[in-house]
């Protein structure tokens, strides 16, 4: 076991220069972020906020321009330990089609352990575990193109799980899925965190996905603007709107009601909390 912070980002800056115009674009500025083992962190930000870049910096696909990123205590700038970093920090991307390598589900899940030189018997155990964890075990002999988007994305998650990583980073895993696929993935991810104790970093621009997290980190314009519990973050509707983000529908409703002078709590996160608040208001009004 390494350090308590599985991901440690210190004074990170990241910029890239366009080779044609020679202009330098700053993507991330002065980022400090620690993620503890077992935590479920959601990173929120709209398009172009730099949140995907942040994800890629966590497993050394990109390296910082200045500052440093430590994955389980290993500096991601250390090229000799690239595979140690990548096997500890698993990454799931947006498009499930473009991350499945082979023509049979179980062969694809076996891809990472095969690359790592794990003995065949152990690969079999890991593949079965990973597929059962994401609920795709009965599809192990299927061909990926016969699966739905949500199922394919679950296979992609299993493919990363089979590496036995310390943390899974999901870079907008639901962006290309339909609502039922999105629900599948978010349920899988939060179950992974709750039941398997997996550290999860979920990068998204869907507010209602961030609600399930322990902590929400809001990125705007390459900087961290908020880092708190979902309840705290979403109660500040004005602030979120200013940086171009929405709030969950239930929160928005409560917010609008309170703006109209109703005495309602504005830190509700989901439909149930919102309805019970409105019920409370209505019984009060009747009295």
């Amino acid at each position: 076991m390494g350090t308590d912070d599985i991901i440690k980002i210190e004074n990170l800056n990241f910029s890239y220069s366009n080779s044609e115009t020679g202009k330098t674009t700053e993507v991330l500025r002065n980022i400090n972020l620690n993620v503890r083992r077992g935590e479920f962190v959601a990173v929120l930000g709209h398009n172009g906020s730099g949140k995907s870049t942040l994800a890629k910096l966590m497993n050394a696909i990109l390296t910082p321009t200045s500052g440093r990123v430590l994955a389980d205590g290993i500096d991601t700038a250390d090229e000799d330990r690239l595979f140690d970093i990548r096997s500890r920090v698993g990454m799931v991307f947006q498009n499930p089609d473009n991350q499945i390598v082979t023509t049979i589900v179980e062969e694809d899940v076996a891809f990472a352990p095969e690359n790592m030189g794990v003995p065949p018997a152990e690969i079999r155990k890991r593949v079965d575990y990973a597929l059962k964890t994401v609920g795709m075990y009965e599809f192990r002999r299927s061909e990926p193109h016969h699966l739905s988007g949500g199922q394919k994305q679950r296979v992609a998650i299993a493919g990363v799980l089979a590496m036995m990583p310390d943390v899974i980073v999901l870079d907008e895993p639901t962006a290309m899925l339909d609502p039922s696929g999105r629900r599948e993935i978010i349920n899988t991810v939060s179950r992974l965190n709750r039941e398997e104790g997996m550290t999860v970093i979920l990068i998204t621009h869907y507010m209602d996905e961030a609600v399930r997290a322990d902590r929400v980190v809001v990125i705007s314009d390459g900087q961290i603007v908020r880092d708190a519990s979902p309840r705290e973050v979403f109660s500040q509707v004005d602030e979120l709107k200013k940086i171009g983000l929405d709030v969950p529908q239930a929160t928005e409703l409560a917010y609008l009601l309170s703006k109209d002078g109703f005495d309602i709590k504005t830190d509700v996160l989901n439909a149930e909390e919102c309805t019970s608040e409105i019920e409370r208001l209505m019984t009060q009004a009747r009295k």
Binding site: F93, N98, A110, N115, G117, P120, M163
Partner: peptide, 24 residues
């Protein structure tokens, strides 16, 4: 797609046939 797949494969520790084992 090729570009994304290459990144995804690297993330899953792909480094060619060297030291590779097989499931089956």
């Amino acid at each position: 797609r090729a570009d994304e797949l290459a990144t995804a494969m690297e993330c899953r520790c792909y480094r060619g046939g060297k030291n590779r084992t097989r499931l089956n």
